[in-house]
Design a binder for these strands. Structure first.
Lengths: 211, 211
DNA sequence: GCATATTTGTCCGTATGTATA
DNA sequence: CTATACATACGGACAAATATG
C-alpha cells in the first residue's frame, strides 16, 4: 500500500470491522484529522473510499457516519450471498486453486475452535466463503463480495456470543468442502444454501434480541 | 444531486460512457480542474468515485487514466452477468414491479429500432437488464450491476457498428420477457443464458477486430 | 546517468452555506 | 431567531515521485 490515503483507509476499515467505531457514530472531519495527524482533504478521500464500500454513509452537509446494520441490510446481504456463493460453488471445478484456500480456511477454523479463539474462527470463516466466490474466476465479483463481507462483519461486531455465531459453522464448512472435493459441486451448493439459511436466521435472531 | 462532487462525477461518467474520453487517456488534475473551473481537491474526490466504479484507474504518483477494456475484462463482466442476471430471472416473481420496467424497456427499444435510433436502443437494452437484476430485490446487487454495466458501455464505446451490436437483441429481450410474463421463469433464464453467450461472442469478436 | 521540469500527494488557511442548539 | 459548529469548496504551498531532455 503506497499512498497515505490507502493506508489510512485500511486502518479505519480495520477499526470498523473490529467494532471500535460504533454503528451510527458520526466521524468528524476536524476531530479525526487532528487525532490522526492528517489533513482534512486526505481524510475526506478516505471517507469517500469507505462510503463506496458501504462501511460509512454520507449525509450531505452533515458528515459521514458509521453504517448501521439493519434487518433489511442483513436480508439484502444474504440474498447476495445466496446468488453469488451458491452459483460459484455449483459451477466450480474441484481442481480450482481456490479449493486449496478453502481447505486451509477449514483447517485454521478447526484449530481456532479447539483453542476457543473465536476471532480466528470468524476470520477463517470469512476466508472460506471468499474462496468460494473466487471459484467463479471473476475479479470484480470477488472485490464486490469482499465489500459485502466487510459489511456483514459490521453486523457481527454488534453482537456478542461470537462462539455461538461461529462455532457451529466449522463443521458445515468442512462438509461443503468435502462434497466439492468429492466431485459433487451440486450437492455442495445445496449444503451451502442450507448453511446460509441457518446462518441468516441466527444472525437475524441475535440482531433482534439486541434491539 | 446535491453536492458539486456528485454532479461532476455524473457529468464525467456520462462523458466516459459516451466515449468522449478515450480509453487509456490520462486525465490531468491541473488541466481538468482548470477547464471545469473546480479546484484540484474537488476533482480528486471525483476521481476517487469514478475509480471505485472501475471507469478510471489510478497509478500512484502518475495520475488517473480512463480504463482500457480488455478481453479479460469483457470475460469477467459476462461471468458476472451470467451469475447475477440468470439467477435473478430464474427466481423471479412474474408480478414483480421490475417486470413493468422490463416491458417498457422492450417497447422503447422497438420504437428506437424502427427509427434507427441505435443510441436509444442501446440505452433501453441496458435498462432492460438492470430491471432483470432488480428482480432479485437487492439494493447492493443493483448498485454493483450498474457499475459493471457502465464498464461494459465503455467497451461498446470503443466499437462501431452500434446497429449490429444492438439491433438483433431487441427480439431476444422481448422473448425473455414473454416467457417470464407467461410464468416460466426457468425457461426465461435459459433464454437469457443463450442471449449472453451470443452477446459475449459478438462483443469479443468486434473487440478483437479493432486490435 | 544526470539535471531539470512536470505532476501528484499532502497540508494549510479561509470563505461560504447549511444544520442544529 | 440568533449563534455556533461543521461540511463544502477554494487556492496556494511544498515535498516527493516521475517523466523528459
Amino acid at each position: 500500500m503506497s499512498t497515505l490515503t490507502q493506508r489510512l483507509a485500511g486502518s479505519i476499515r480495520d477499526k470498523l470491522i473490529a467494532g471500535e467505531l460504533k454503528p451510527g457514530e458520526r466521524l468528524s472531519e476536524t476531530a479525526l484529522s487532528a487525532s490522526l495527524k492528517v489533513s482534512r482533504n486526505t481524510l475526506r478521500e478516505v471517507f469517500r473510499i469507505l462510503t463506496m464500500e458501504g462501511l460509512l454513509f454520507h449525509e450531505p452537509n452533515r458528515g459521514v457516519f458509521v453504517s448501521v446494520p439493519s434487518v433489511s441490510s442483513i436480508i439484502d446481504i444474504y440474498r447476495i450471498r445466496r446468488i453469488v456463493e451458491c452459483r460459484a460453488l455449483a459451477g466450480a471445478d474441484p481442481n480450482h486453486p481456490a479449493v486449496g484456500r478453502m481447505r486451509r480456511a477449514v483447517e485454521t477454523a478447526i484449530v481456532g475452535r479447539a483453542s476457543k479463539d473465536w476471532a480466528s474462527v470468524g476470520s477463517a470463516n470469512m476466508l472460506f466463503h471468499a474462496a468460494i466466490v473466487e471459484l467463479a474466476d471473476s475479479r470484480r465479483l470477488s472485490v464486490f463480495y469482499a465489500q459485502v463481507a466487510a459489511e456483514l462483519r459490521l453486523c457481527f461486531g454488534m453482537l456478542e456470543d461470537q462462539e455461538f455465531l461461529h462455532a457451529s459453522y466449522v463443521d458445515q464448512n468442512a462438509n461443503i468442502l468435502a462434497a466439492l472435493e468429492a466431485g459433487r459441486p451440486a450437492e455442495s451448493a445445496e449444503m451451502l444454501d442450507a448453511y446460509l439459511t441457518r446462518s441468516e436466521r441466527t444472525i437475524l435472531a441475535a440482531f433482534e434480541r439486541k434491539m
